[in-house]
Write a protein that binds this DNA or RNA. Structure first.
Lengths: 206, 206
DNA sequence: GTCTATACGGTGATAGAC
DNA sequence: GTCTATCACCGTATAGAC
């Protein structure tokens, strides 16, 4: 592959990423992606046979970013549970601060075609058995049932993701016009959410 | 308006609701709505001039369902805060159990066109000043700042909504194939989330 | 009010020149 | 590898008969 090929391909992927994430599969237009990449529509089809094939690339990529690295984070044994939670929440929120539209994009596309999901999991390197093992181990550590621990994990993830997924609503209802106020709020949540989660554990352990 | 007119109009709205909520504005097809309503495309335009006008009706309606009735719930003074929280969470989750795709629909459409949101708020009867007043009052009661109370409210809402918005993902990763398992999980959350929220308050009040 | 037929623009995809 | 031109189709919207 020549330098130029690689360049154009990357240029297309970058443009497609931007447009697909903002508009979704249904709302995106090949023309807009071409414009964004500074090329013409025909070239898109030359590199990626179809709109859907191009979309698949992007979706696969973004799904990989979306999955929390909980397996690595929650299973390393040399730090305290409290520190694990703080690290998890902080890192996860950081990913969304860098990719603000990732949550809404994933939610949108996952609802558009729920049946095809599992094939994407495999390619994303998501190991379902490993995840369940992590939860089982966490359950022992917390002296909770598997089901309770599952609620616990989903609570933590909900608190990280929803402020991004629902941003347009929340921001217009509860914040001022100044965008930086919401960004500050999101930054705060790295500690707020962790504190929140940890406080519920302290209650339970009493 | 005759009985028949009313009937057809309602039939169209019902069909449009189903299709738009599932597919979104971009993914929905007028033909599919017509089929669902048992009529033809032309009649859709006879009743509602355009696809977008029909969509607006549905979006407006659904946005109204989506807004938590927190103003009424959180401001009535004759029950304890703990009971208010339990009632809020339980009612809010019940709405989503009855309308499982409401969260993903709202998130999708709100990201598609964030700028137009405020005009919909007014028509939904959403009173921004009243909401802020409720939070201010709650802040006093909890001995917290406005900003902390805002986090608190958003936490509570996140925990209610995300399991619906992210259902296809969560279900495939952490649950069995049996759909009823997830429904049971959602039902459980009426108490789990309330307990969770209330437990953090007890910590803070010590 | 409801239908069939059709206009009209847009969109993904391809052919073919360079 | 990249472009222009064009195709074939689909989707919204309208015209006109009943």
């Amino acid at each position: 592959m020549t330098e130029q090929q690689k360049d154009t391909e990357q240029q297309i992927l970058k443009a497609a990423r931007k447009v697909f994430i903002e508009k979704g599969l249904d709302g995106a237009r090949m023309q807009e992606i071409a414009d964004e990449a500074g090329i013409n529509k025909a070239l898109l089809h030359y590199y990626f046979r179809s709109k859907y094939k191009l979309f698949e690339m992007i979706f696969q990529e973004e799904l990989g970013k979306f999955f929390p690295k909980m397996v690595t984070l929650m299973s390393s044994g040399d730090i305290s549970l409290e520190d694990k939670i703080r690290a998890f929440v902080s890192n996860y929120i950081s990913i969304f601060i860098s990719n603000p539209f990732l949550p809404s994009f994933i939610i949108k596309e996952v609802h558009r075609d729920p049946d095809n999901l599992k094939s994407f999991f495999v390619k994303s390197g998501l190991d379902l058995n490993m995840i369940r093992l992590v939860i089982t181990n966490l359950a022992k550590q917390l002296n909770m049932s598997f089901e309770e621990t599952r609620h616990f994990m989903i609570n933590m993830i909900s608190l990280c993701i929803f402020p991004f997924a629902g941003r347009p609503l929340i921001e217009k209802i509860l914040f001022s016009e100044d965008k930086s106020e919401y960004n500050k709020f999101l930054e705060e949540r790295k500690t707020v959410v962790a504190d929140y989660i940890i406080s519920t554990l302290k209650i339970n352990s009493k």
